[in-house]
Structures are given as C-alpha cells and as structure tokens.
C-alpha cells in the first residue's frame, strides 16, 4: 500500500511557500519594527498551539504561521497587551477550540483582526503599500499551480470586483488582494462545493463593493469585515449548492 502527499501539513507548507514573496516585500517596507511584531505573534500563536498539543493531543499546524503573518500585516495598531489579548482570543476561539486548522469555521487571523477592530475602534488601520499587492500575484500563481487555491473563489471574486468597479480595477488594492488570497481563499474555511465556491467568491466581491460604496474607512477594515461575513456564510452557501445539486439529480434520475 502506498500513501500520497496531500495531507493537511503539505497544504500548509504550500501556503507558507506562497507567503514568501509577500513576506519579503512587507518586511522590506516595515523593517525591524514589523519583524518584531511578526515574531511576537508567531511566539504567542506557537505557545497556544503547543498548549493544545499537550493538553488536547491536537497536532499543531504550520498554517498558524500564515495566520500570524496575516495578523502582523493587517491588524490595527494597538498596544502590546491589547495585541496579545487579541491574538490569544483569535487563535484559541477562532481555531484551536474547534480542533485546529481544517476543522474550524473561521480563520484565526480574521477573528483576531475583527476583535481588535471592534475592541479598539480608535486604533489606526495599517496602510498597505502597493508593492504588497503586486507580490500577491506570484503567491496566487504558486497556490493555483499546486491546486491549493480554490480557483472558483478567486475568479468569482475578481469578476464581481471588476464589474462593480465599473470595469476598472479601482476596487483591487493591496489590502483586498492580501485578504482575498490568504484569508478568503483559505481552502479550510472557504466553501467546499464547486458551486458553493462560485457563490462564496462572488459574495466576497459584492460585500467589498457594497462597503466601499457606503463606508468611509480604511480598505483593510473593509476587506477583513467582508472576509468575516463570507466565512460565516460559507456553510449556508455549501448547503444551498448541495440542495441545488440534489434537485438537479432528482430531476435527472427520478
């Protein structure tokens, strides 16, 4: 008997590889201060994963590093204590209590960022430089090449974003690109049926367009809020897609 390679950790490793171009351009821009923040989150997230490994025999996942990076890039600027509380809340209640990456409903990065955003509304949202947006293109290419990125989500979101922007690329800025590739297209939290994935991507694009039209705030907040809402809607979208599939089969096969 032979075993294949597409275990959870292989997928996480592909995600880490895809993260490299974005990480390089972000660290280039942020310097030592940003690196320190990233290391702080990595240590804290690693600590929580280790605790759950020892007390609940829950294997740790390298995907935690991807979430840690997304938090470092996208989280609002708050003090270290608030930051520690937010990261702990996000990892424990967003992911680890559900059984770790692959069993959770939400990405811990989205939970952390929204927790900090709601908890400290006066904090400034980061502004992502334009080269990070460009760096997401090789990242998406790596993920698509290995078949890890659900391409239907990506295409669905891009089509809606471009159409809603009046066939320009106004709505495609760095913040939305990073959130789309690393948080929305995370295969563990996105919808899992083919049709559900089209719905899911399109819903993300529609939310972005809606928020951008009526909400005067930073693009990061718009993008992460949309990511949270579509993640919560993903099971419903899957359920709709399955119901539709079953109706078609009932019609076809009696």
């Amino acid at each position: 008997m032979i075993r294949g390679i597409w275990t959870r950790e292989t997928v996480a490793m592909v995600f880490l590889a895809a993260l490299l171009p974005v990480a390089v351009s972000w660290i280039w821009d942020e310097g030592v201060w940003g690196t320190g923040r990233l290391v702080f989150i990595l240590v804290l997230a690693g600590l929580w994963q280790a605790l759950f490994t020892f007390f609940r025999a829950q294997p740790p996942s390298a995907a935690g590093a991807v979430s840690a990076f997304a938090i470092a890039v996208l989280a609002p600027e708050v003090g270290p204590l608030q930051f520690a509380i937010g990261v702990s809340f996000g990892f424990v209640f967003g992911e680890l209590v559900f059984g770790g990456w692959g069993r959770s409903v939400l990405s811990p990065a989205v939970v952390t960022i929204m927790f900090l955003g709601f908890g400290f509304p006066a904090a400034d949202w980061p502004h992502l430089p334009v080269q990070i947006g460009w760096a997401t293109i090789p990242a998406a290419a790596i993920l698509l090449f290995f078949g890890v990125l659900p391409w239907r989500v990506l295409v669905g979101a891009l089509v809606v974003l471009i159409a809603a922007g009046g066939f320009t690329i106004d709505l495609l800025n760095s913040a939305i690109a990073v959130v789309l590739i690393f948080l929305v297209c995370d295969p563990a939290v996105s919808a899992s049926t083919p049709l559900g994935r089209w719905f899911y991507g399109a819903l993300f694009g529609a939310m972005i367009a809606l928020f951008a039209a009526f909400w005067e705030t930073a693009p990061v907040q718009i993008a992460v809020s949309a990511a949270l809402l579509v993640s919560l809607a993903a099971p419903l979208l899957d359920e709709m897609a399955i119901a539709l599939w079953q109706a078609v089969r009932r019609y076809r096969h009696g």
Partner: peptide
C-alpha cells in the same frame, strides 16, 4: 495520542473523486 488530521479541500481531493459529487 494525537487525533487524526483533517482533510483539506484541494484540487487533488476533487480530482480523486472524479469531480462527480460534492
């Protein structure tokens, strides 16, 4: 001691089922 790791929905899994069903 550990619990088994969950399966992540990649294109490999989709192809392994022939893309026939959810």
């Amino acid at each position: 001691a550990s619990r088994p790791e969950p399966v992540i929905a990649t294109a490999a899994v989709e192809h392994a089922l022939g893309g026939a069903m959810p």
